[in-house]
Nucleic acid binder design. Sequence first.
DNA 1: TTTAAATCGGACATTCTTATCTTAATTGAT
DNA 2: ATCAATTAAGATAAGAATGTCCGATTTAAA
Lengths: 150, 150
Amino acid sequence: MINKSGIFSKSCSHALKAATFVGKKGLENKAVKLKEIAEEINSPLAFTAKILQKLVKANIIESNRGAKGGFFITKVNLKKVVLKDIVFAIDGEGSYSGCALGFEKCSASKPCALHFQILPIREKLKETLVSTTLKDLARAVDENNTFLKE
Amino acid sequence: MINKSGIFSKSCSHALKAATFVGKKGLENKAVKLKEIAEEINSPLAFTAKILQKLVKANIIESNRGAKGGFFITKVNLKKVVLKDIVFAIDGEGSYSGCALGFEKCSASKPCALHFQILPIREKLKETLVSTTLKDLARAVDENNTFLKE
DNA sequence: TTTAAATCGGACATTCTTATCTTAATTGAT
DNA sequence: ATCAATTAAGATAAGAATGTCCGATTTAAA
């Protein structure tokens, strides 16, 4: 629920922004420090740290501790990771494919009251989350066509 | 989060179900009592009461107190109320039209990193919420084509 | 080997959403 | 008038999401 303002939770929005920024730096094989990420996406430092850890555990990005450490993403992952992976890692399956009225079992054969209205939207969303790679987002941001901050 | 499992908050899901059930009864000009609504949509009584009150204040449904009281909807409103009205009343504008990354100002001229991916989905969702009436939902439920309970 | 720079991990705090409880107000019927 | 049924409204509680703090761990470099 999605949270009060949109499709993803706030955590997930932060995650998408953070991953995109790490991805942008990954385009030139650079690692970035937590502090820089938090500043760049305008998200609280400690909270950003938690989210980044989840992304690391989900094998979306990687990290190095200690001096000269930081977060980074390999070229391979940059191409391979799609938005769905991030949404799953943070918000879980529900927000990716859940029923609009919250039913566990909702299908064409036992459809909730909103099923047929929401179906095409859900399908389109899924398709987008599966087909958009982190690299797509990173490139657009790198080329200044889109933004991670207001 | 929209809440963790979907497009609408849990409150909003309850609201949509409750309104649909009141609408179903409205098809035959009947009022329904809180208790019956809560049972029918499988939602906690007191919480359902709160949500119904919001719908009353938003002029979506009406209520009568005292013996023989209950909640009801007029034929006029049944036809006129669209899903957007309910979503607005409960979750506010954000979940209807908010930016996927939570930015206040996100537009084609200053697009967030997800703007162009999410745009068609948002538009489709808006279109659906504006074009689907409560009567549409109520009728489908009344004809046993869709459900309000698992 | 010490030190400084980082991430990691767990405990804690805060805020928002969801849910309950209790009392008041209203209404119809006796 | 009184009583029972019912919604209205406010206070409070429980839970989940969001956010903070601090100490532990790892690493590179001096």
